[in-house]
Design a binder for these strands. Structure first.
Lengths: 242, 242
DNA sequence: CAGTGGTCTAGACCACTGA
DNA sequence: CAGTGGTCTAGACCACTGA
């Protein structure tokens, strides 16, 4: 490990983290108070405080006035989920990526769909349907709608060259996103497009993205169940790792 | 919003964040240098630095020596995924929760399974199978293995009272977890246990948890596709929210 | 009410790196 | 090589809250 070049607050942070990970400091245990740590590491209070703040921000400890700082009891209620950017990942690993464009239409939003009406915000929607093809194999069906009012520039993009997701990611800063994961059986059409038997279990990823309160895009991606896994890894220090 | 009681570094952070969100500061744009911000907010460099460090930790800006700080170009490659603790969530919302224990055995790991051999680490495994039942409805099938070498205390726990996941979460500090999401068709047995037609699309959550390098538990949870969604939300500032 | 953490200052020296 | 961020100090005042 890089030991020599680490800053002092980083070394203090790591040493406390190591004590917590090793079990020397059990959940609920009290962390030495700032004055003790100042003496132990021979540094100022600001430096100790920076290390403790980082641990608190990572959820490893909890700080309470008058009482002190304590090792958190772990609560695995959330994890960092890696959302695949199929195009970027395929190319990064040297594979062939292709977005097979099936349909592209400018439409008014469906009046009965609250989601579409919100997304459109009084303007038209660009509806794009296509298949993500990796190394010649269809991997996922994508059904996307983009608000032309929010993103007029999308009207001129050639989606046979770049997938809509990759283009949007690179051009439109988002501020909020919501992803929903579920499972669904492939209907006849989806099955044919993905080259799987009808009724196959598929992983469905639905994502909506906003910029401030304005909707940008809404997408539904359907993966054949066995062809793609989404993996989330978590280590306590990851929440701070850059 | 709470405006009066906010600390100065927090106000600086929020104001810069607001400029970024509003588009006044576009991705790639240069953030005023620390000296400018010191003048603008009439504060010391440490206070400005704290605000900028927080923005950098949240991924909103990138700091480069000599060059300055710049608004990041968004990369939505990971999101915080909320993993349900069915027991805690059900009880929190006033529902009835029950873990219907189907099987409980102490077994040696299967020699042909690398995963089981690693988890067992030379000791036996506790295998637990049960169904999460919420308000009388079966919601998920859980198939779990726990390393008795790593967690001897688990041998004495009554899993008709507490679900294994909830017990482990409260008693064994983990340091690393990996979650895999996929879709699979319900076989006859799973379908019967969940009360759905055979072949139904199910969302499968597989999670392995470690304490340091030692495996603690490995679990596979099968949800009927329409009965449970997993939702991940992301806002840039969330990575710092407590 | 005393001990704890939260914040802030005014300064300092340094490391990095692009003009 | 000068401008920028990274780190650190020694102190200060304050807010909170449990013994």
């Amino acid at each position: 490990m890089k030991l020599a070049k680490l800053s002092l607050h980083e070394r203090i942070r790591r040493q406390l983290e190591a004590r917590i990970m090793s079990g020397a400091l059990q959940p609920g245990a009290r962390i030495p108070v700032e004055q003790q740590l100042m003496q132990e590491f021979g540094c100022s209070r600001m430096t100790v405080s920076k290390a403790l703040s980082a641990l608190a921000a990572a959820g490893l400890i909890e700080r309470r006035k008058r009482a002190g700082s304590f090792v958190s009891r772990p609560r695995v209620h959330s994890m960092l989920l890696h959302i695949p950017d199929l195009e970027a990942e395929t190319k990064a690993s040297g594979g062939r990526y292709e977005f097979r464009l099936l349909k592209r239409q400018v439409l008014p939003p469906a009046r009965q769909s609250k989601l579409e009406m919100e997304l459109a915000d009084g303007g038209p929607l660009l509806a794009v349907t296509g298949v993500h093809v990796v190394n010649g194999q269809p991997l996922a069906l994508e059904q996307r709608q983009v608000s032309l009012k929010a993103v007029p520039a999308v009207a001129d993009v050639d989606f046979t060259v770049t997938s809509p997701g990759t283009w949007l990611l690179q051009h439109i800063p988002w501020t909020e996103a919501e992803t929903r994961l579920s499972a669904a059986a492939a209907d006849r059409r989806v099955a044919a497009l993905l080259g799987v038997p009808a009724g196959s279990a598929c992983l469905v990823v639905e994502r909506r993205t906003w910029r401030r309160a304005k909707g940008i895009t809404s997408v539904r991606q359907t993966f054949e169940g066995r062809s793609y896994d989404m993996v989330a890894r978590f280590r306590p220090s990851d929440s701070r790792a850059r």
